[in-house]
Amino acid sequence: MAASPPQKINVSLDVNGETRNVAIRPADTLLFILREYLGLTGAKPGCLNGDCGACSVMVDHTVYKSCIMLAVEAVGSKVTTIEGLKDSPIQHAFIENFAFQCGYCTPGFIMNCHALLKNHPQPTYEVIKEWLSSNICRCTCYEEIQEAVMSVIEKRE
């Protein structure tokens, strides 16, 4: 095996309500740890550069691109991935409004929408745009995603 073993540290991550103990390299991104060590492959690698939003997850109440966050930075916080959403209105809305095709950007988009709707129960179009322009969907024309978000807002009224 390796002559100089990788310098790993043991950390405890709270992911989707479970405590997960894992040995990580400080250089590992949260995305890498979620996918490779915790088996949570819902967050997707799309650019590893913070550009596309496919890897978006929530850390406490904020949505982050997990490719530009170190796993070690999430210690002490509550991480929620798409696998941690259960029956949320936005998931249903995505299905009903055909807001995805290939589905690859979907977990990231849904997490961002979910965070948006948690933080802004009645967002204006400007706020929706501000938030959702953080993610790229290459299949839909975005109208379907807009309709999905709007349908959740309308049902709240």
Partner: peptide, 8 residues
Amino acid sequence: KVTGHAKY
């Protein structure tokens, strides 16, 4: 696809 379980 909406639950993150779709495998690529």
